[in-house]
Design a binder for these strands. Structure first.
Lengths: 139, 139
DNA sequence: GTGATTGCAAATCTTTTGCACTAAA
DNA sequence: TTTAGTGCAAAAGATTTGCAATCAC
């Protein structure tokens, strides 16, 4: 049973990704990866950082989100044109998208299977398969 | 074998949708629905209209695309945050998304099947299931 | 020190909006 | 007429960029 070591966990992640562990990146990494799976927009993460008295500019939040995504620490989920969501769960899985409130919910990889996948067009290869189940209702 | 009647076809579509057949909507409907299935952005459609010497403002293109979508004549496909695609194919089907050039390609409904669909979260109902297969490569 | 990173403000891009003008019924 | 629809230009929202100041190594 590993004990909580939020500091070194974030530090190790950044080091492993080859990203310099700056104060801002450490703060954002802690917000993102301490606790369970999360789906955030840049705006939300920025607000959360400010609430936690972490001084980070919105531009830096955007930078960090993209750097984390390139490093494989985050995955971008496209469900809405005009807003980018980032998912801390990078394993193979899909999403429910609650149209009513714009919230995302993970669907574990083994709970949804695509039976027949058509072959990719000639000359191309599959990069990723995204399944979005749009649901409505109050929940 | 029905003959080509692009004018009345567009007219009938608009009438059926309860949309006043204005010069602009008729022009856009012809561009969209004469010929096969198409995937366009507002910007692309606007450009195409100008190329065909049809005078339409970009704002009107946006209006028309959303009205057509509400009327069930178009379907919006979300594959990229920051750009909205509209699909003239409103039947049940999915998409290949060519990452390299941002092009969409239809996957007929019967060529892709989702085997196990998890039940929607309590209190919600499924509005739509979207499958996007992102492919890379020159094609 | 030196090069990477940050913050800020301005710029960019897509989409929406307000409102006077035009056109369909 | 009367009301819906259009065009324009401005506004709005999300994201990016340029660059001087700051920080990690």
């Amino acid at each position: 049973m590993p004990e909580h070591r939020p500091y070194s966990r974030a530090l190790d992640r950044l080091k492993a990704a080859g990203l310099r562990p700056t104060r801002q990146r450490m703060a954002l990494a802690k917000l993102l990866f301490d606790g369970g799976d999360r789906h955030v927009t840049a705006e939300q993460l920025h607000e959360q950082a400010l609430d936690a008295a972490m001084r980070v500019s919105l531009a830096t939040v955007y930078n960090a989100l993209h750097q984390f995504t390139s490093a494989g620490m985050l995955r971008e989920v496209v469900v809405e044109s005009g807003r980018a969501y980032f998912d801390t769960n990078t394993s193979d899985h899909h999403h429910f998208y609650h149209v009513a409130d714009g919230k995302l919910e993970d669907i574990a990889g083994d709970r949804l299977a695509v039976a027949t996948l058509p072959p990719p067009p000639a000359g191309t290869s599959i990069e990723r398969v995204d399944v979005i189940i749009r649901v409505k209702g109050e929940r």
